[in-house]
Amino acid sequence: MNHQTFSLQPFLTDDSLPNLKITGNISHHSNHLDINYQLTGDLEEVVIPTPVDTPTRQHKLWENTCFEFFIGVKNSQHYWEFNLSPAGHWNIYRFDNYRQGMQEETAFAELPFSIQNQSDSLLLSLKFNLAKIISENQAIDVAITTVIKQQNGYVTYWALAHTGAEADFHLRESFIIEL
């Protein structure tokens, strides 16, 4: 099993950043991927969508608070973007190359994950099988990211690494976890 912990860093801007910390862990074993996020700090400053009873696939989840990760097959240009809203909504997009050929990934009809919204933290956990999109023997590179929308409307971008002049989660140089 390959297991790693992570701590996301905000993209630095001239604007003040919220007092938040985003940590977690990711593991990959027998083509199963488990990822857990923990958001702590001044959560009252964050727009956290209310959980829904029946989550659905939705577009543009990144316009609000959204936990994301990107998976690329090692030595290949194509990759997938996973979007997970604290409301329970989700989506997966497939790309042929850097921001090219974006298509909704239809291999998944659902992506169930759990949310625990506590007074001092927000926890998100996802466990699923990658077999629908990636062969078991393929090595993968992962980027872990989060978009945080603040109550004042300001949006901050968090990632393992920010390798560009602007916040850009799609840069393959940012896919720094190897599983």
Rank of each mutant, 00 (worst) to 15 (best):
H3K: 13
Q9C: 11
D15L: 15
T23Q: 08
N25P: 14
N31F: 07
Q38L: 07
L39R: 00
T40M: 11
E44G: 10
I48D: 06
V52Q: 14
D53V: 06
D53K: 15
T54E: 14
T56K: 15
T56V: 09
Q58F: 11
Q58G: 15
L61F: 06
E63P: 13
C66W: 03
F70M: 01
F70G: 02
G72H: 05
V73I: 12
K74S: 13
W80A: 02
E81L: 03
W90K: 03
W90T: 04
D96G: 04
N97D: 09
R99Q: 14
R99M: 09
E104T: 11
T106L: 06
A107S: 12
A109Y: 15
A109M: 10
L111H: 02
L111Y: 03
P112Y: 08
P112V: 06
F113C: 01
S114T: 09
N117I: 05
S119E: 11
S119C: 14
D120P: 09
L123M: 08
S125Q: 13
S125E: 07
K127N: 14
K132P: 02
I134G: 01
S135T: 12
E136T: 11
N137V: 06
A139R: 07
I140R: 05
I140H: 02
V142F: 02
V142R: 01
T145A: 02
V147E: 12
K149C: 10
Q150T: 08
G153E: 03
A159R: 03
A161H: 03
T163Q: 06
T163K: 08
A165T: 15
E173G: 01
I176W: 00
I176D: 01
L179A: 06
